[in-house]
Amino acid sequence: MTDLASHSPLAPADAGWPRVSNTGFDGLVVQFADRLSEPANRAALAFRAAIARAGWSAVEETSTSLVSTYLRFDPLGVTHAAMRAEVEALLATQDWYAAALPEGRKLWRVPTVFGTDLAPQLEEAAARAGLSAEEAVRQIAETQLRVQTIGFAPGQPYLGELPPAFDIPRQTALTPQVPEGAVVVAIRQIVLFSVTTPTGWRHIGQTRFRLFRRDSDQPFVLRPGDEVLFTPISPERYATLEGTGPDGGAVAEALT
C-alpha cells in the first residue's frame, strides 16, 4: 500500500491515508479512511470526479463507496505500475479531504409521511435517539443529507449524516419486508429503499419516490454527491400522490 498520509489532515502519520491497493488484475482502490466521515466521503467523491476529468484512456470504469474510489482499467493498455503511478501523482496534487464536491449535483426535496401505519417504527427510533417523535422528525427534515454512496439494491442511496442523537444501532432481528420508497434509519444514516426488501433498519417514513427506473435511459435517479431533504406531509397528501409519476411529488434543483 502507498503511504500518502502527508496529504491527509485527518490521520496521524502512521495511519497512511489515503492508501492505494491493487484489486484483481485490472483494478485499483484508493481508500481515504477506514470509517465513514464527511471529509473521507468528500475525498472519495472528489477524487472520482478528478479521474473523470483527467480523461485517462485506459480507465474503463469508476465508482465510489462510502470512503473509497475504485477504478478499473484495461491491463492490455497499461500496466498496474503505470496506472498506480498516475493515481499517486493525482493524489499528490491537492488535499482531497477539503476538495470541492463534484459539479452537476442536485438537491431533491422528497415528500415523506413520517410515522403512522405507513412507517410504524418512528416512535421506537425516536426513543432510541432520546427524542420525541415530533423532535426526531424536525431534526431529520432540517438536515440536508448527502448521497454518500449507492449500494445494496439498484439505485439505492445511503444518506448522511444525521445529528449525533441518531447514532442508533440496527435491530437485532429483521423486519420481514418494507416497501419500495421506505425511509429507514440507523447509525446516523438514512436509506431510501429502491425495492421492497427485508431490513434491519427501523422504518420511520414512507415516500412515493421511485429510485430505480429500469426502462429509463438513466435508471438510477440519485447519484453520489446529490443531496436530499425529506419534506413532512400528511397521510392524506401522500394518498393524493399516487399515480402522479415516479417522482412521487419530489422536485430537484441544481446545487452550486
Rank of each mutant, 00 (worst) to 15 (best):
D3Q: 11
L4V: 00
H7L: 15
S8P: 04
S8H: 01
P9D: 11
A13P: 11
D14A: 15
D14I: 09
L28N: 05
R35L: 12
P39I: 06
A43S: 11
A44V: 08
L45H: 11
R48Y: 01
R53N: 07
R53C: 03
V59A: 06
T62D: 02
S63G: 14
S65Y: 01
L66A: 15
T69K: 02
T69G: 04
T69Q: 06
Y70K: 12
R72H: 06
D74E: 12
H80L: 13
M83E: 14
R84M: 06
V87W: 07
A92D: 13
D95G: 07
D95E: 12
A98V: 03
L101D: 03
G104A: 01
R109A: 09
V110S: 10
P111H: 03
F114L: 05
L118S: 09
A119H: 09
L122M: 08
L122N: 07
A129I: 08
G130L: 05
G130V: 07
L131W: 12
L131E: 13
L131P: 11
L131D: 12
A133L: 08
A133Y: 03
V137W: 08
Q139T: 04
L145S: 05
R146D: 07
Q148G: 13
Q148S: 14
G151R: 11
A153R: 10
A153N: 11
P154Q: 07
P157T: 10
P157R: 07
G160Y: 07
L162N: 11
A165V: 13
D167Y: 00
R170I: 01
P176Y: 03
V178H: 00
A182Y: 01
V184I: 13
V185H: 04
I190W: 02
V191F: 01
V191Y: 05
V191A: 10
L192K: 00
F193T: 14
F193I: 04
S194K: 08
T197C: 12
T199M: 08
T199G: 12
G200V: 06
W201M: 09
H203F: 14
R208K: 13
R210S: 11
L211P: 10
L211S: 10
R214Q: 14
D215S: 09
P219F: 07
L222D: 04
P224K: 09
P224E: 05
V228L: 02
F230P: 00
P232F: 03
S234K: 10
P235D: 05
P235E: 02
R237P: 00
A239D: 15
T240D: 09
T240L: 10
L241V: 01
E242M: 12
T244V: 05
D247Q: 14
G249L: 03
E253T: 15
L255I: 14
